[in-house]
Every structure is written in C-alpha cells, then in structure tokens.
Amino acid sequence: MPLELGDTTATLIGVVTVDEVEELATWLRVTAKPRVNLRKCNHLHTGAFQAILHFRPKVSAAPTDVFLAGLVLPLLMGSGGPPIRERSEP
C-alpha cells in the first residue's frame, strides 16, 4: 500500500500513483497540521506532488531516492531547487 494515513502523518511508500492522489488530497485537506514522511517513497505522481505543494504539509522525513531528494524535496521545502547552470557556448 503506497499510503499509510495516520492521525497527523501520511507515509508515502514506494510508487505513489494517480490512484492515491484523491485519497492523499482529501487527507491533507481535513488533517490539522499534516505531515508527510517521504523516506520510503521512490516515485511520486505529479498529482500527489501538486497536492503536497498546494496544502504545504511539513515533510517529516526526506526521501532517500536521489531524484526526489535532489529535485523534488527542495520544491516541497519552499526552495526553487539547485541553481540552473547556463550553457557555455563553444
């Protein structure tokens, strides 16, 4: 099961698909001070990502997946991510 929804923390596990988006968004909407644990998440559907961005829960555990940790987590934490390096012309 990709979602484990507790009283205040949602744990996202493995591959979170479009099938979990509505359940996650509803939980985020009705939970006071929600938290998300992304430690065991290795794929986050864009709908789930958008729900997390919209409701801005606290991230209680960072993902260990390199892509999620390096590029997605900074966006969830309010950063624009790493600076984009401009290409140098040859």
Rank of each mutant, 00 (worst) to 15 (best):
M1P: 09
P2W: 02
P2D: 06
L3K: 03
L5T: 00
G6P: 06
G6Q: 03
G6T: 01
G6S: 07
D7E: 14
D7Y: 04
T8F: 07
T8L: 11
T9K: 01
T9L: 07
V16G: 00
T17C: 13
T17G: 11
E20L: 05
L24H: 00
L24C: 07
T26L: 06
T26N: 09
T26M: 08
T31H: 05
A32V: 15
P34F: 02
N37D: 15
R39M: 08
R39P: 11
K40Q: 15
C41Y: 02
H43Y: 14
T46A: 12
G47F: 09
A48H: 02
I52G: 02
P57D: 06
K58T: 15
K58G: 09
V59R: 03
S60R: 01
A62N: 04
P63E: 04
P63V: 15
T64G: 09
L71G: 13
V72E: 09
L73C: 00
L73D: 01
L73Y: 01
P74C: 05
P74I: 01
L76P: 01
M77P: 02
M77D: 04
G78A: 02
G78I: 04
S79R: 15
G80C: 15
G81L: 07
P82H: 15
R85T: 14
R85P: 13
R85Y: 11
R85H: 13
R85G: 13
R87S: 12
S88L: 11
S88F: 08
E89F: 08
P90G: 14
P90D: 14
